[in-house]
Design a protein around this nucleic acid. Sequence first.
DNA 1: CGTAGTATTGATAGAGCTCAATTTACGTGG
DNA 2: CCACGTAAATTGAGCTCTATCAATACTACG
Lengths: 269, 269
Amino acid sequence: MRLIDFNALIPGQCFGSRRLGGSEYVPASYFAEVLGEHVELSEGERSALTRLEERTRSLRRGAILQRENEAGGELYIVRSGTVMSYVLLDDGSRQILRFHYAGAMLGVPGLIYRTAPETIAALTDAVVCVFDKATFSRLIADHPRIGALVLALAQIERVALTDRLAAIGRTSAKARVAALLLDLRNRMRAADRSITDSYQLGLTQEEIGDATGLTAVHVNRMLRQVEEDGLIRREAGRVTILDERGLTRAANYIDRYEDLDLSWLPPRD
Amino acid sequence: MRLIDFNALIPGQCFGSRRLGGSEYVPASYFAEVLGEHVELSEGERSALTRLEERTRSLRRGAILQRENEAGGELYIVRSGTVMSYVLLDDGSRQILRFHYAGAMLGVPGLIYRTAPETIAALTDAVVCVFDKATFSRLIADHPRIGALVLALAQIERVALTDRLAAIGRTSAKARVAALLLDLRNRMRAADRSITDSYQLGLTQEEIGDATGLTAVHVNRMLRQVEEDGLIRREAGRVTILDERGLTRAANYIDRYEDLDLSWLPPRD
DNA sequence: CGTAGTATTGATAGAGCTCAATTTACGTGG
DNA sequence: CCACGTAAATTGAGCTCTATCAATACTACG
C-alpha cells in the first residue's frame, strides 16, 4: 500500500469552507483562523497574529525543521503540509509524539529549554512560518487573551498526548491502531468538513508503528485484522471507515473534540 | 538568557530551605514560591497569586478531587502531600499520567473542557487550594506574565509526558521502571536538597505499574532485577541508588531539568 | 524498466501477562 | 504490647501478544 501525496490534501482543503468565488482563500494568518474558531478576535489581535506569519519557509518531505538537543528555539506555524514531532532513543528507535496540520503552532515546548526537547520534521512537502521567542513574548504581553488561547490549545494537545499515553500503556495493538485511525480522521475532518468516513492516510506503516509503539510488521497485521473485522476498508493508502461505532469500541476511543468550553477566557480587548 | 535550576521548580515537601528559626515557613502562596524561582514577581503579581490560595481543602489518602467525565472544572494548587492524575479505561485498567507535589497547579487541562479529562486523586493525605476558572481568567488577564509562566510550566509537564510516552512506547520494562525511579528521585530532590541517592518510594508496585504501563507482578520482577544488577538497594519502601550512572544507562533516562530558559518572558509589570 | 522504499506474509522467539499461592508489612482494636 | 485482618510484596508456572527474522510482492518514480 502506498500513501498518496498528502500535500494535495492540506493546503486548499483545510479551509475549504472559506473559499471565495472560484479562487482559493489564503488567510493572512492561519493561526488566527484556528483561534477564530474558538473566539471572536479583535482587529488588534488579528493584526498581531498576522505578524507571526510574515516569514515563511518551504520544506521538502523529510526535511528537519528543528533537531532534538540542538539550540534554536524558534516557533513555527504550519501553513500547509503535514509535520510531525518525535524523539529518538539511544538504540535508534523513534517515538512519534504528534502529527501537526495547517494552523498548528510548533515549538512551544522548546520555549523553556535552551535546546530542543524534540525533533520536528516534515512528513510531506510543507510550508511553515517562522518567528522567535521575543516575538511570541511581545504577542502575549500585548494580547493576554491570545496567551490564554495558546495555553488552551496547549491543553488540548496535552490531553491528546495523555490519551495516547493511556492507549500505549494500557491497550492492545489493535486498539492503538484503531484509535490512531479515528484520531487522524477526526483531525482531518476538523480541517475539512467534507471528509466523513474516507480519507488518505498519509502515513507509512512504520510511521504508524512509531506513533503507537508497535513495529511496522505488527501494524500491518493489525490493519489487516481491523479490515477483516469489517471496520474499515483500505485501498491504495485510502482508509474508509465502514463501522464507526465498532471501530470506536475496538479503539477504546474518546472523542474529546466535542465539549470544549472557552467561556472562561478573558474578554476581548 | 537566564538559566534556572529546575530544582527550584519542582516543589515538594518543599521549601525546606526556607525554614525560619525552628518553625516552618508557610508561604502565603505556594504557587508564587514556584514562580518566584523563575522570575522576580511584582507586588501586584504576588498578591494576585495569594488570592488563588484563600480556600483550602484537606484530603484523605485516596480521596478523589476531580473525577474524569464529571463537570466541575475547578483548579487546584497543591499545598502538601502527593497527588496523582490518571485516566481509567473501559476495562477498568488505569493509566497514571503524573505525580504532583506541593506547589503544582492542577486542573489546567480541565480548563477547556466541560467535563474533566482526567481524575485527580490524593496519593497521601494532602491539602490543596481551590479556585475556579473565572478567578484564573482574571488572574491571567490582569497579569499576562503569569499567564506566560503557567504556559511555561505546562510545557515542562508536556515534555515530561512525552518522555514517558517514549519510554512506554519504545523501551523495555526494566528501563521504564529504572526511569521512574530516577525521575521520582530527581523530583523529590528538587524539593528537598538533602535527598541524594536514598528516598522513600511512596508508591505501591501497582501504582508504579499503572504509571509505566506494566503489571504489578512484572514491576516486582523488574525491581528485583534492577536490585540484582547492583543498581539499587531496597528496604521497606526505601530505595537507595547504588550506581546512578548504571541506572541512568539502564533507563535511557534524559534529565531535562537542567537547561531551562525563561529569558523570553515578558517584563515585569 | 530498474530501483528503492513500502507492504505483505510466514515462522519462531521472547518479553510481559495471567493465574495462583505464599509471605511480609502494617494499621487497628483489645 | 500483642493478635488479627487486610493490603502489599513475592514467587512460580504457563500462556499470549508482539517482536524479530526472513522472504516476497508491490508501486511510485527516475
